[in-house]
């Protein structure tokens, strides 16, 4: 039996792809990514071949993770919304529950309000699919070492 694996079935990836392609049309976004909470790229829309989606996924997940930590450090439960404004492209990131991140890269022709609205709708559609992927995860939280266990292990 696997321990804590995520499994992505072809039909689920098809669903995710359909959802983000729809979002791409709605928002005229340049590229859309779905990244899981560990930085793993799950799906992305077709884009400029010079943009490496795996690297982009890793960096956005790292960025999102750092920002969420920052939020906790200044007493916010979480920032579900992260927005970076550049001079040409903007990045909008939104958490998909606790399972992943929806990343939308868009240029200044699309109003941010539109991105925000459609992103929120999209994350709701994506959440059940990503949750299904994660189900195996629940099994692993058992039997973690106690403080005493660790002290015994590293009994220097």
């Amino acid at each position: 039996m696997f321990k804590g694996n995520k499994v992505l079935q072809p039909e689920d990836l098809d669903k995710i792809n359909d959802i983000i392609e729809k979002l791409k049309v709605q928002t005229k976004a340049l590229v859309i990514l779905v990244v899981d909470d560990t930085g793993q790229l799950i799906a992305n829309t077709e884009s400029d071949p010079s943009i490496d989606p795996i690297l982009l996924g890793t960096l956005t997940a790292g960025n999102f993770g750092a920002t969420n930590e920052l939020a906790k450090l200044i007493g916010e439960a979480d920032f579900t919304l992260v927005l970076h404004e550049g001079n040409k492209e903007n990045i909008h990131m939104l958490a998909i529950g606790e399972c992943g991140i929806l990343v939308v890269i868009f240029n200044n022709t699309t109003p941010i309000g539109l991105i925000r609205m459609y992103s929120q709708k999209t994350t709701k559609e994506l959440l059940p699919i990503l949750e299904k992927m994660q189900q195996e995860k629940e099994k692993k939280k058992t039997d973690l070492p106690s403080d005493e266990d660790l002290n015994n292990l590293f009994n220097w």
Binding site: S50, I51, D52, L55, L56, L59, T67, L70, A71, F79, V82, L83, H84, E85, G86, N87, K88, E89, I91, I105
Partner: peptide, 12 residues
């Protein structure tokens, strides 16, 4: 990666 110089201001 996006070929942009930088995002000069990050607001959360």
């Amino acid at each position: 990666l996006l070929g942009q110089k930088e995002f000069s201001l990050l607001f959360h």
